[in-house]
Each structure stands twice: as C-alpha cells, then as structure tokens.
C-alpha cells in the first residue's frame, strides 16, 4: 500500500466520506473509489466501477472475480463507510421505541426536538438529544448517504422544515409518520415550498412496512424493517 493511498484513505475516513480501497490481487496495484471520483494506481472500466460503488453503497467488502476465468481478474474491494445514522425528528412515544431498536440494528441515533418537555434524558436514556429547530439540526448534522431520517411529530411546524432539508440531502431513507390523508396535505404544502415531484416521491409515507402495526413499539419495528429493506434491497421497499 502506497503511503499516499493510506493517507488519502485515512483523510476520507476522518471526514466521514465513503470510500472503497480496490486492490488488484494479481498486480498489487491499488485505487481509491469515491462516490464521485477515483484516485490511484490503476483505472477501472465502467462496469467494474459500477460494481465497486454498488459494494460501497451496500457496505459489502469482498472479491470481484471473473466467473469464466479462475486465473483472471481478482479485485478485492474494501468498503470504508462512516457509521450508519438515524436522525429522528420528534421525541415522541414511537421515538422512545425506535431509538433503542435502531441502536441494536447498528445505527447511531440522534433524536431532535426543540420542545424541552419531550426531549428529556429520562424519556430517552442514553440517546443523543438535539434541541435545535429540526431544519437547523439536520443541516448541522450533515446528512450523508449512510443517514436515515424519520419525522414523527405530525406537526407541520416541525416536520415540514425537517423534510425540506432531508429531501434535498443524500439521505438513503426519508420516512414521515402520518395517515394517507395527513400525507396528502403534507405533499401539497411541500410542493408550495418548491420541492419537485421526484424529491417528494422519496418520502416513505405512511411510514414503515405494512405489518399491521398498532402500538408505538410495533410501529417502530415496521419503520426499522423498512429502513433495513431500503438499505439492503434498494428503493424497492
């Protein structure tokens, strides 16, 4: 490994930038593949670059080989990704269940709510709380492609500013609590705020997989299941 590659790799990790270190096991040459750039010792053809970025997105390190040729191509892709994060807007009852479930699933959780009586340590023991206004909090937390955002307040004053930031961010998942009726009204408001149809279509609402969830904990399970499905299977979920 060249010192230059190692330094750039460590710098990307320090800045929470996703990067894949690709090693040609036959030649020892290495290349860093970013989401939007490539740096290093050898070039990759477009189809291989796509496969590398797919692995980076899925956080799946491993070998890319030529199935037709045992002695041929052997690339090792080492995905280096910043930690997964879940930003929950609304320190509400469902959030109290969602925070620990998300933490178990491997997410660093932040609960955002400017209403002091909601976002308290006693309601959210051990959870990172942020009492800024949701749009300010989300901007400050720098949403990346390893971040999921869920709004749970039902209150347009809190949810809408959060969605305006989240839907223009690289977040891999944006979900918003509310019935179909609530969501239809929300879409109208956000459209007036200037969001395009493609941006609005990113919202998962009503939030969560349809498992007939009733209680706050069940809804939290359905939300976490949906986030997992989107992360592992792509936007199909």
């Amino acid at each position: 490994m060249k010192q230059d590659i190692l330094d750039r790799l460590l710098a990307a990790k320090a800045d929470s930038i996703p990067v894949a270190l690709v090693t040609d096991l036959n030649s020892g040459l290495q290349t860093l593949v970013f989401e939007d750039a490539v740096h290093g010792g050898f070039g990759l053809e477009d189809d291989l670059l796509t496969k590398v970025r797919e692995r980076l997105r899925q956080d799946r390190s491993g070998l890319i080989t030529d199935p037709e040729d045992d002695e041929g191509l052997r690339l090792f892709v080492h995905a280096h990704n910043p930690p997964l994060r879940l930003l929950v807007v609304g320190a509400v009852h469902i959030g109290q269940a969602l925070a620990p479930i998300a933490a178990l699933t491997g997410y660093a959780v932040t609960v955002i709510d400017p209403r002091g009586s909601f976002a308290t340590e006693s309601r959210f023991p051990g959870v990172t709380l942020n009492d800024a206004w949701p749009d300010e909090a989300l901007t400050q937390l720098k949403i990346d492609s390893r971040t999921a955002v869920v709004t749970l307040t039902h209150d347009p004053k809190l949810d809408d500013p959060a969605l305006l930031v989240a839907l223009r961010s690289p977040a891999f998942y944006v979900g918003s609590l509310g019935s179909k009726r609530t969501h239809a009204k929300r879409l109208e408001r956000l459209k007036e705020e200037g969001l395009r149809d493609a941006e609005l279509a990113r919202i998962h609402a009503p939030v969560g997989l349809d498992i007939g969830a009733v209680t706050p904990a069940e809804i939290a399970v359905s939300v976490m299941a949906q986030i997992t499905a989107v992360r592992r299977k792509g936007s199909a979920a």
Partner: peptide, 27 residues
Amino acid sequence: MTDDILQQAAGWRAEGRKVAVATVVAT
C-alpha cells in the same frame, strides 16, 4: 476498529518503522 489499525500503521510508518498490513479478503 479498522480505523485504529490503519492509523497505527500510518503512525508506525511516520516513526520510520517498516510496516505490513494483513487483510481478510475471502472466507
């Protein structure tokens, strides 16, 4: 964890030591 390992490798290099890194590539 991996961060610490690569950082340690870089740190050793900075001190002028020879360093090798081993990575599990397949199981």
